[in-house]
C-alpha cells in the first residue's frame, strides 16, 4: 500500500485521477441502494474502473504482474459490456435497440479477433480501445437523438443520464481524436496528463449522475407518499 501511495503521489495528475476514482466510488456507495437500474450500471462502471485501476497498479508495484497489457484485453471487454447494458436499457425505440445491438456485435467480434489474432494478450489492447471508444461515441449520439425524439425529461440539467451521456461523448470523442492524431503526428506528452484530468472529471460526473438519479427517485417516492 505504501508503494502505491508513493507512486501516485509522484504526479499531481496521477493523484487527481486515482483519488477521483476512489472518491467517486465511495460517494456512489451512499446512494446505490435507491437508484434505477441504469444508474446501477453506471455505478458498476465507476466501481469496476476504480477496482481494476487500483488493483492492477498495486499488483504491478508489488511485482505480481509485469505489466497491464494483458489485463486491458479483459477490462476493456468488461467495461464495454457495462456501457452496452446501460444503452440497451436506456434506449427504448426498436431501431435504437437494434443499433445498440449492432454496435455490440461489431465490438465483441473485433475484440475477440484482436485479442486472439492481431494484438494478442502480450500487446496493449489499443485497437480494442479505439473501437470501444468509437462505438461509445456512436451510442452517446444515439442516446441524444433518442432523448430529443421522445422528450424524456422535464429538466435536462437535473437528469443524471444527460450528464452521463454528455461525459461519455466528450471523453470518448477526445480519446478517438488522440488515437486518430497519433496515427499521423505525435501527440504531445502533456496531453496524456490532460487526458487523466478529463478521465477524473468523467468519473466524478458519473458519480454526480448517480446522485441526481437518487434525488429524482427520492422526490418521486416523496410525491407518491
Amino acid at each position: 500500500m505504501a508503494h502505491l501511495i508513493e507512486y501516485i503521489s509522484g504526479s499531481i495528475f496521477k493523484e487527481i485521477y486515482y483519488y477521483s476514482l476512489l472518491l467517486s466510488s465511495i460517494f456512489i456507495l451512499f446512494f446505490i441502494k435507491k437508484v434505477q437500474r441504469p444508474s446501477l450500471i453506471i455505478s458498476g462502471i465507476v466501481i469496476f474502473s476504480m477496482l481494476h485501476n487500483w488493483i492492477i497498479l498495486g499488483l504491478i508495484l508489488n511485482g505480481v504482474l509485469e505489466s497491464n497489457k494483458a489485463v486491458y484485453h479483459f477490462t476493456t471487454f468488461i467495461e464495454f459490456i457495462l456501457f452496452f447494458l446501460f444503452y440497451r436499457n436506456s434506449i427504448t425505440s426498436y431501431y435504437g435497440k437494434l443499433w445498440v445491438l449492432a454496435g455490440g456485435v461489431i465490438y465483441f467480434a473485433f475484440q475477440l479477433i484482436n485479442s486472439f489474432l492481431i494484438q494478442h494478450f502480450s500487446y496493449y489492447n489499443s485497437n480494442g480501445i479505439i473501437i470501444e471508444e468509437t462505438i461509445l461515441v456512436f451510442y452517446a449520439l444515439l442516446f441524444f437523438s433518442e432523448i430529443r425524439q421522445h422528450v424524456f425529461y422535464d429538466n435536462l440539467f437535473k437528469e443524471g443520464f444527460f450528464w452521463f451521456n454528455t461525459m461519455v461523448l466528450v471523453f470518448n470523442s477526445f480519446q478517438v481524436f488522440i488515437w486518430g492524431f497519433q496515427g499521423f503526428l505525435q501527440t504531445p506528452l502533456w496531453w496524456f496528463d490532460i487526458s487523466k484530468i478529463l478521465s477524473a472529471i468523467m468519473y466524478l460526473v458519473f458519480a454526480f449522475a448517480v446522485y441526481l438519479d437518487y434525488l429524482s427517485n427520492l422526490s418521486k417516492s416523496n410525491n407518491a407518499g
Partner: peptide, 17 residues
C-alpha cells in the same frame, strides 16, 4: 508545428463538441 496542429485540432474537436 506538431503542437500547433495538435492544439488547433483539439480546439476544433472541442468547439464541435
Amino acid at each position: 508545428t506538431n503542437y500547433i496542429v495538435f492544439i488547433i485540432a483539439a480546439l476544433v474537436v472541442l468547439i464541435l463538441l
